[in-house]
Computed example of a mutant assay.
Amino acid sequence: METEADDVNRAMMLDGNAVAGRFAALFGAEMTTSLTECASCGQDHMMGALLAFTHAPGVVLRCPSCEAVMIKLVETPRGVYLDARGAAFVRIAR
């Protein structure tokens, strides 16, 4: 049974394409077609297919299969913090 909080979270959810510009600026490459594997469930997805939550101080990307947190990105005046502990790998094309 879904709660009201679940409905609000789903209404605020985008896909990974919503943060394409941030990742392109950070990595110097188009990242939406980069393959990544969820460390929780082992499923492979393109970055653009991840579930993006952008209504916070940073960005949270979740696995579309199991909804585990894969990547967190926070930009501050002092630097960029990237936590990708939830991703087994992210492939960046050459």
Rank of each mutant, 00 (worst) to 15 (best):
E2P: 14
E2W: 09
E2I: 12
T3A: 07
T3Q: 10
T3S: 15
D6W: 11
D6I: 08
D6K: 09
D7S: 11
D7G: 10
V8S: 05
N9I: 13
A11Q: 10
M12D: 04
M12W: 07
M12R: 12
D15M: 07
G16K: 01
G16E: 03
G16F: 02
G16R: 08
N17S: 13
A20M: 05
F23D: 05
A24D: 09
A25M: 06
F27H: 11
F27A: 10
F27R: 13
G28I: 02
G28K: 02
G28E: 02
T32I: 11
S34C: 15
S34N: 15
L35I: 10
T36Q: 09
E37D: 06
C38G: 06
G42I: 02
D44C: 07
M46D: 07
M47N: 04
G48F: 00
G48D: 09
G48M: 03
A49L: 08
A49W: 06
A52H: 07
F53P: 00
T54F: 00
H55T: 10
P57G: 11
G58I: 05
V59Y: 02
L61G: 02
R62H: 15
C63N: 03
P64H: 02
P64G: 01
P64M: 01
S65P: 07
S65W: 01
C66N: 05
E67K: 12
V69Q: 15
V69Y: 04
V69S: 14
K72L: 10
K72Q: 13
K72F: 04
L73M: 11
L73V: 11
L73P: 10
V74R: 14
V74K: 12
E75L: 11
P77R: 14
R78T: 04
G79D: 04
G79T: 03
G79N: 03
G79I: 01
V80Y: 00
Y81T: 05
L82F: 01
L82Q: 04
L82G: 01
D83L: 03
D83F: 00
D83R: 07
D83A: 06
A84K: 13
A84M: 14
G86P: 06
A87D: 01
A87R: 03
F89W: 13
V90C: 00
V90K: 09
R91F: 08
R91T: 12
I92K: 10
I92P: 08
I92W: 07
A93D: 12
A93C: 04
